[in-house]
Design a protein around this nucleic acid. Structure first.
Lengths: 141, 141
DNA sequence: TATTGTTATACTCTATAACTATA
DNA sequence: TATAGTTATAGAGTATAACAATA
């Protein structure tokens, strides 16, 4: 019989935090934190966003995102472009250096997780891929 | 065609961090952090552990776990019992108060995630349950 | 010597509150 | 008045390094 939904949600929450901690551990010699990389990857894949849009997508507050964006801007990985129609906004755009960094970071960082995932069966990988989509939907509510 | 393993691992990593941030947000009025709760839940479900065992299971360092255990001990949710055979060790045991708190915390905290999960289909919930197990295996390598 | 646990210290990420500029 | 963004500040969680006690 299936577990109760409560039990499933407890398990999912604990597994999510454990995996997040394990992944963070694997990053230590990286120059981008998980949050920083996440922003750059979104810009690279989905194009320019405003600060609020990034904050909402990554599930953090605007001040947190502002800090992350400042860091990435100082490194030259993105730039703020003034919005022609609304002086309060700026459009945040990845730079060529940022795009190169996304690619290099994926290659480097995914060594660990990708290699672990290669040891899984096809079915297990597909279960994780399906779960990723559902997790994003859960997070966006 | 299935996505590449690299793409799958990037998606899983980003989804994991997004969901972790979203879940943490939901906890703010709780008296136990996710890490604190995780330890108590493990003790409640799997019995006594040494400090090292807890650190390894939860994927944190021993000093981090020590801090968490101290907090829970001060609150009266667990106690350290001297190990008869090895004076360096202590066995960390949940107290009755701790067990009550685990139960109450699950009920309170899972309101959000459980309610979101009720909106999913049975297949989606089973995909998440399957993924939780795989995520734990990934985290424990 | 090696292992278990602890203390000291510092860093990263995040949040809330208060503020500025623009709509 | 409301919204987008920013600055100031504080707190939680984690790590590494150094140490103490015991095996």
């Amino acid at each position: 019989m299936a577990q109760s939904i409560t039990r499933q949600s407890t398990e999912l929450r604990m597994s999510t935090f454990r995996l997040a901690r394990r992944l963070r551990l694997e990053n230590t010699d990286d120059d981008l934190s998980e949050s920083q990389f996440g922003v750059l990857a979104v810009l690279n894949r989905f194009g320019p966003h405003t600060l609020s849009q990034l904050a909402e997508r990554e599930r953090v507050t605007a001040p947190s995102m502002n800090r992350t964006v400042n860091f990435l801007q100082e490194r030259g990985y993105l730039r703020r472009e003034a919005d022609a129609a609304d002086g309060r906004r700026s459009n945040i755009v990845i730079t060529p250096e940022g795009a190169v960094t996304v690619r290099a970071t994926i290659d480097k960082r995914d060594a660990w997780l990708t290699s672990r995932m290669r040891d899984l069966t096809l079915e297990e990988r597909e279960a994780l891929a399906a779960a990723s989509l559902i997790m994003d939907r859960l997070a966006s509510e």
